[in-house]
Nucleic acid binder design. Structure first.
Length: 258
DNA sequence: TAGGCCATCTGGTCCT
DNA sequence: AGGACCAGATGGCCTA
């Protein structure tokens, strides 16, 4: 028995908000800071007004007929369903751009795993970018005082072949693993800025179908050139750069493996 | 069978 | 007033 047979054509809950350049514009309402300010209770004159208004609404609902109430409930349920569907679509979109998330032998990431991995992925990319900027400014420090994209020198070939007046390119970096910070990667990149990268790893539990670390790498790993297992068990202990939230979340997730 | 994950319903709260 | 957001409850499905 499904109660969603009524198709309510309410306004779309604008999934494109997720693509907005201004996350604060459509997101501020989602932050429950207003509730926490009063300890979850409405307070002050504003709170009294809201309470009075909501109690009026309750009276209105009591005056509604049974069928009207049911119609309203169906409408609200439908909206909520649609909202959750939009959220899931956005979550799928996030999974699509996440490493690990592809391949027939890799099970779909859970929501919490997707969010935690995405966060760590962003941290790793940010750290890598910073490191790359630092290296470039070191190498070209003389006449390229600041980092600039290769096109700034006129051609993408700049990145591959030495140009007159430019020093030869340094050896290529190994392939970066998008989630973990493989020892090989960190060893190839000097500097202390990699500690954050080193702390980015994925737990075994995020790769439920991957099997033990000694097993052949699933297809999800193949794209990273057969890099070693990124799980917590196979990595160095986390550094203090990992926020407590991520650490807690990851430890919770990795506890699944026990 | 227990536990994890998920979808759905529901009531409350807040925003426009 | 209507809609969006949120969190709690509930039940189903799946896996170890």
């Amino acid at each position: 028995m499904d109660s969603d047979s009524s198709v309510i054509s309410s306004q779309p809950s604008s999934p494109d908000l997720l693509l907005s350049d201004e996350p604060t514009s459509g997101f501020s309402g989602a932050v429950s800071s207003t509730q926490s300010e009063c300890g979850g209770e409405l307070c002050g004159e504003r709170g009294l007004q809201l309470r009075a208004r909501d109690s009026l609404r309750l009276k209105d609902k009591k005056q509604m007929s049974e069928s009207e109430l049911q119609q309203l409930r169906l409408k609200i349920n439908s909206r909520e369903r649609k909202r959750m569907h939009d959220l899931n679509i956005a979550m799928d979109g996030l999974r699509e751009v996440m490493p690990y998330a592809h391949g027939p032998s890799v099970r779909k990431l859970s929501k919490i795993a997707t969010l935690l991995l995405a966060r760590n992925y962003i941290l790793m990319l940010t750290s890598s970018l910073e490191e790359m900027k630092r290296l470039v400014s070191e190498i070209y420090g003389g006449h390229h005082s600041t980092f600039h994209p290769p096109t700034a020198c006129g051609s993408l070939a700049h990145a591959g072949a030495p140009l007159p007046g430019h020093p030869p390119p340094h050896p290529p970096h190994p392939v970066h693993h998008p989630i973990m910070a493989p020892a090989a990667t960190s060893a190839s990149l000097p500097g202390a800025g990699l500690s954050a990268v080193n702390s980015i790893r994925a737990p075994h539990s995020l790769l439920k179908s991957a099997g033990p670390a000694s097993a052949p790498l699933p297809s999800g790993f193949q794209q990273w050139g057969g890099m070693p297992c990124p799980c917590t068990m196979c990595q160095v202990p986390p550094s203090h750069h990992v926020s407590s939230m991520a650490t807690a979340g990851m430890s919770r997730l990795s506890s699944d493996t026990k």
